[in-house]
């Protein structure tokens, strides 16, 4: 008994620093966001007294709804593109010899040592009306001279895929690495066509990796702010931009909080869904 209580004290002591810090700087601030969403703004850019539903009510306006819809489809579409590209790469990496594997993994990771902003900037330069891609496409007649590659939702999807693709390749590769490739050969021997074997045996075999990969793009994409800010223009705005505008342009913190509440809930939705589905299917460990 004494031994057990001493053990308890030790546990509390060792856990205390992180529990304290993350409670103060993670849980409490999140609760503040919910609380401030119900507060009125004051004219000096601060938070007024009393409580109100106005911030939440004002979210139901066509402008916000259009932005919310765009945020959703950009995130879904980017996640889909990442998945389609990352699956064959994960498959390839799992099958290639150990030496090449290390080399390719290195090649995939190295570009992402550059700063996030700088990578987005590099695309801004490439997609620019005077940039290389525009010139090539215009010369080959694929696009008219007036078509703009920059400042639209397409540019946002492109750069989102560029930014998050490595984070989808790695979990898929990790799952494929554990996959027993003899199963594919067995399927072929039993008469399955190549694509059929891939879809019916390989994809279910790496399901966990696929789910993790989707979450790794979808969730950060929902909260994207810098990418649409730099390459999106007004027609590529997402919820993140609206939150930033409320904070930095018109300094309406309660309105920014209301938008953040929507974002928090939409991030939680897919996470909870995956956790519940996994619990139903099998004994869960963790998402990773």
């Amino acid at each position: 008994m004494r031994r057990e209580s001493r053990q308890k004290i030790r546990e509390t002591l060792v856990s205390f620093p992180s529990l304290f810090w993350l409670s103060l700087f993670f849980i409490v601030p999140t609760l503040f966001v919910f609380a401030i969403a119900l507060k009125p703004a004051n004219p000096y850019g601060g938070i007024g007294s009393g409580w109100t539903w106005d911030n939440l009510r004002s979210l139901v306006n066509p402008n916000y709804l259009a932005v919310a819809w765009r945020t959703l489809w950009i995130s879904v579409f980017s996640a889909a593109v990442c998945l389609v590209l990352a699956t064959p790469i994960g498959y390839y990496l799992a099958r290639v010899t150990a030496r090449w594997k290390g080399f390719f993994l290195m090649l995939i990771i190295v570009p992402f040592w550059t700063n996030f902003l700088i990578r987005i900037f590099a695309w801004k330069v490439l997609l620019h009306p005077e940039g290389a891609i525009k010139k090539v496409l215009a010369l080959s007649g694929l696009i008219g001279p007036q078509t703009s590659l920059l400042y639209n939702a397409g540019a946002v999807v492109l750069v989102t895929v560029y930014t998050f693709l490595p984070f989808t390749i790695l979990p898929i590769y990790a799952a494929a690495e554990k996959f027993d490739f003899q199963l594919l050969e067995a399927a072929r021997d039993l008469g399955a066509r190549r694509l059929q074997a891939f879809v019916r045996i390989f994809l279910p075999g790496i399901r966990r990796g696929l789910i993790t990969a989707v979450l790794f793009v979808f969730i950060p994409a929902l909260g994207s702010y810098v990418i649409p800010d730099i390459v999106g223009g007004p027609s590529g705005e997402m919820i993140g931009n609206k939150i930033a505008q409320r904070v930095f342009v018109d300094r309406n913190l309660p309105q920014a909080s209301a938008l953040s509440v929507v974002l928090i809930l939409s991030v939680l939705a897919p996470l909870v869904t995956v956790l519940v589905l996994q619990r139903k299917r099998e004994k869960p460990e963790s998402l990773l």
Partner: peptide, 27 residues
């Protein structure tokens, strides 16, 4: 509980952490 608390900041989009900390500091 501790694991959940340490794990969650990894999956939360950055902008949410930014705005919630801003709200804390302002308040």
């Amino acid at each position: 509980f501790h694991f959940g608390l340490v794990y969650t900041p990894l999956v939360v989009p950055e902008i949410l952490m930014g705005i919630s900390l801003l709200m804390l500091f302002v308040t």
